[in-house]
Write a protein that binds this DNA or RNA. Sequence first.
DNA 1: AAACATTCCTGCACGC
DNA 2: TGCGTGCAGGAATGTT
Length: 277
Amino acid sequence: MPELPEVESLRRLLAASLVGRRIVAAQVAERRLRRPLAENLAHQLTAATIQGVRRRAKYLLLDLSGERILMVHLGMSGSLTHRGHEFDDSYFNPAHDHVRMKLDDGTALVYNDPRRFGLMKLGRAAEIESSTELRLLGPEPLSEHFHPAYLAARARGRKTAIKNLLMDQRVVAGVGNIYASELLFLAGVRPQRRAGRVTRAEFERIVAATARVLSEAIGEGGTTFRSYRDSRGQPGRFMRRLQVYGREGEPCYRCHNKVVSRLVGQRSSFYCATCQR
DNA sequence: AAACATTCCTGCACGC
DNA sequence: TGCGTGCAGGAATGTT
């Protein structure tokens, strides 16, 4: 579910509400996530102070006291919620509250993940920073390192579809299925175009469209297509701004022809065959 | 009830 | 042949 804009929106909320808080108790109800949680995770979390909340790609990084980091990935259906007064828990099924951290102000930080495709790992800061999960990631799409010449170089000679390339976290980190469709619509490029055949002018439009879509989505608190909720239990607001994702058969906002849906690399992809070449 | 916002692994094809 | 790389397909799972 969560792509870069959702995780970044979450990061901003959590940074405002968690920094300085101390974890006074932790409980692990279910260890079977994508990989089993460490047996001593609850113990390791207890008494830690949260000193910062950062993001890399779709990973959330909680800086803890003792030069440690709690790395969290939400997979398809995960959420990290800060529950206290004003928290809307109407969406959540407590059966999937896998990790619960009680904080020193009486609130709780809860990891909930129905499908359990997510990841949670605590370690020494240096080890997490150089872990296999983070080490191979490509540049952040909103950084200066993601530019047309870079993308063109990574695409050279590649036969895979441009949409697959953009969703390859080693090429650029944080773009997922929803925003890949959206940015390619803005760039006027069909998702199934072979990456090696995309022109320089198109790479320039793709890079610009990536920054625009992700920035706007962050500004709207991310997209809730199905189940994403932020740390307060609230959905994102970018859904109403989606141009093509989930709009199969509906009119393109630009030319009024029907938006089509095709499988590209096993993932549903939406585009306008008139506006995108 | 088919589809799903993600990642990881396997196996095959290809090229040097 | 042997090895590395690219690519497609599938699996993990619960919900709607």
